[in-house]
Amino acid sequence: MSGWFMAARSRLILLALVLLANVAVAPGFLELRLVEGRLFGGIIDILNRGAPVILLAIGMAPVIATRGIDLSVGAIMAIAGAVAAASVNAGHAWPVAVLAALGTGLVCGLWNGVLVTIFRLQPIVATLILMVAGRGIAQMITEGRVLTFTDDGLAGVSSATLLGLPLPVLIALAAAMITGLLVRATALGLFIEAVGTSPRAARLAGVPAPGILIGVYVWSGLMAALAGLIAAADIRGADANNAGLWLELDAILAVVIGGTSLYGGRFSISLSVLGAVILQGMRTCILRAGLPPELNLLLMALVIALVLVVQSPACQPAIARLTTRLRRRGAA
């Protein structure tokens, strides 16, 4: 565990800074209140709003670890949301709609995985196809409108409370834990990293590379479908044009902030989740700061640039020196 804290060090500092900025904008941001069996507070807001990108990052990290990328997750969100909304509107019960959406995510992921693994398309090209066409598919399902629904069960995916937490937060945490266990409690994580480091060496060492590759895209599709369900439930409607728009980029950014290299190899689910939380924390802060909205993107860009520069190999030794000095002073 202390190894994890070492690896997470710079991100935890970042998260602390982001939370401090939020406190500066809105005093009382860190307060947690229990009202009618549900927790309220700034941190819950960040996790709740950030749940879709957290899920996307959980799916994206293993894909990137195989030296791949999945640009289609935003579009898969739109398709999954559209499928869910169309199913309940067609009179199906909400669990059917949820299963249909998740199944759609699996199929989309399988499509990506097959293109990458069997047809050897470059991942960026293979997933670009679905990124472009997927939104069109979603638009066909919704006929270009925001397909609203009144089913409280489906809306509950976003608004229900369980164990005092909003359901999206629990879904994201559960997905992170399950994925983390899958890759770290078994050899799966090592296999994924092996495929990303050298597919040929991995194959020669007996790693079932094609299965692993297809699997990571399928998992990414599934996570995207979950995110799409949350996004649709949030507004009680499937907005094919806007659901998940550009979120693939946020997910990639979250994974990169989490320290996973786009060249593949080592990856971390927990740090990717942390990356997504940091991103959402920044967004929440900017939205609540009361600054002119023209500054939103500029501020995001500046902070992200700063984050990545601080994490760059060029800056890491200096930060390590600083932390050891601080620790010595603390010990003395």
Binding site: V25, A26, G42, D45, R49, V146, A231, D234, I235, G237, D239, N242, A243, T284, L287, R288, G290
Partner: peptide, 17 residues
């Protein structure tokens, strides 16, 4: 950004702030 989801998120921020 003209969308329901962002409209909701922005309003949540206003209410909290």
């Amino acid at each position: 950004e003209f969308t329901r989801a962002k409209g909701k998120e922005v309003m949540e921020g206003f209410i909290k702030a």
